[in-house]
Write a protein that binds this DNA or RNA. Sequence first.
DNA 1: AGCAATATGAGGCACGTGTCTCAGAATTTT
DNA 2: AAAATTCTGAGACACGTGCCTCATATTGCT
Lengths: 348, 348
Amino acid sequence: MNEESDGFRRPTTKDIARFAGVSRATVDRVLNDREGVRQPTIDKVHEAIRELGFVRNVAAANLATGRSYRFLHLLPRTGDQFIEELERYVSEAANAFIAERIVARVERIDMNDPHLVAAYLSGLDPADWDGVAIMAPRSPQVRDAVFRLSERGLKVMSFVTSQEDEASDGFVGIDNRAAGATAGLLMGRFLGERHGTVAVLAETMTSQDSLNRRYGFDRQIGERFSGIRVPASLETYGDPDRTRSILSNICTHYRDLCGLYILSAEARIPLEILREIDAQDDLVVIAHERTAATVSALREGRLDALITQDPGHLARSVLRRLKAKCDGYEVLADQERIRTEILMETNL
Amino acid sequence: MNEESDGFRRPTTKDIARFAGVSRATVDRVLNDREGVRQPTIDKVHEAIRELGFVRNVAAANLATGRSYRFLHLLPRTGDQFIEELERYVSEAANAFIAERIVARVERIDMNDPHLVAAYLSGLDPADWDGVAIMAPRSPQVRDAVFRLSERGLKVMSFVTSQEDEASDGFVGIDNRAAGATAGLLMGRFLGERHGTVAVLAETMTSQDSLNRRYGFDRQIGERFSGIRVPASLETYGDPDRTRSILSNICTHYRDLCGLYILSAEARIPLEILREIDAQDDLVVIAHERTAATVSALREGRLDALITQDPGHLARSVLRRLKAKCDGYEVLADQERIRTEILMETNL
DNA sequence: AGCAATATGAGGCACGTGTCTCAGAATTTT
DNA sequence: AAAATTCTGAGACACGTGCCTCATATTGCT
């Protein structure tokens, strides 16, 4: 647009140099914290930067350095719709960022054995990659491998599933306790006056994420909805037959069954079986993540609410954060926060 | 990071030129659709671009053109917490984008008289601004002024409040029908078996946004919750005294009052008065927008749910869309979609 | 005071693209 | 076939920053 004609020019390093009464070389030394500059000089430069409101022209800087960013995304090989969706979004985000010189590749690897994952990570050459984003179940092996990778200079982020504390800056994803709590709160509110049993269905409860969700769920129910009983989580191991027998079992066993919380990311199989066995109509069902299966279940009234994280945002955030780590600057915290979203029929 | 050492170099215009067997000047003519190039030559260049996967280095391009973007944001002068918040976020977004050569200024102007707004817009000099973002109540005068502005080459976006169809690409914000529908659905679900009257409170029903929200709300209630009755909307005109008398009136008048939908963006006054008059405890209250007042009401249980749009996202999206319009490229639709969010205590 | 060490300046090249100009080639028109 | 017209090429400069070298100025030390 405006051709800098109209006096609207941002200050450059040259302006800083002139204002501070030093040379551009010195400004450069200060800006890129190179050594060999005395404190008073450094101060003068910073003063000029402050005074003129200088902001480094990243475009020019990137151009000068010819920098590019090679990021590797590691996703589990096994998985159903959620993983597929996620992979799609990661690829799409990668595509959207090539203009910023970000080159991202997505690999699906076997995440079941932590030793294998750790070995894979150890085999990565820091000369090939600037950063790695990994979604793997939390395990000491993987956590250590991640740590060693970053020691070798690679920037690493875990996403969806955290290797450490979910609040750490090496993680992009939702707070699973909050997600579980939201599910619990919604369940309680939707049930209203109705008392009874709410079943919790999970692929497995061995993962930290599952435990966190369950913890948050229980807390809400326990604190606010005394009329609701929540037995131990039922594990499907992703097996349709097992899921079927679990679901028909609880329907007959708990005469007062009034709710079902599907805690895992992949809800397709339980939802299909639920329709198949023709479960009671007023059962309140809450699940996680937006996939083809959950969306249609929501539309058809077989699902009451969905607790989700926006996979597109997730994927873009991972890239932005990796880039920020490489460049050593702070991300815009507000923009990168992954929200725990509640979806219903009306706000899909 | 990698210093292009490792064979990882994106193709440049020079590469395109070599591959297509033409000169860089010709490539440039094609890229920036300048005339004077024969079709076969154009095709050769496009072929090379496709073949090599060329993506224009925007950093370099912006550097070369010395382009900067001057955007003006117009917000209503009057308003309470929501507007204040919004202004804060707009300024913050503007700040975050100065690295991309975006200079944004925020003005608060009187939006009550459409003629004044239109006059203000007409007075804007396209030489001073590249784009304008405006949040003003829908009116023919403003809509026409917006139209004339864009005819004069200025890029214009409306946000929060649309001048045209909410689906148009000149608007950033939520679909207010969907927002109202979400409020209605939640209201119905939270009430469960309870039947009775739900009151709708609005600052004014003269705005299109209010009408849309009410429309969506009514549809949900009418379609799915036959036990709920929703009388005509009650208008507060933002006046605390009037609000107080309305609220105490309905509490006594409707013996079966069970819910309250605060439809307008500013919910502070109704919420405060609701606490003050000590309304019944099991009243289901749903409001819009995240502000200090609504957040604390949610935390204290005086509010059951909040339908919101993320103001930070809104502000950033406006800037990105304006910039995209200036540069004539498409935005990442997925990233720019403003979600209708549901907030409860657990996912604030 | 003289010397070594350190701090600073001056200047140049590179990055990829936009935007000129001018000359020469290819094509069309006469 | 010659002239007029339209395309295309070659080259230059600019944008703001990073990074380098070499010379000179300044400081600290003995």
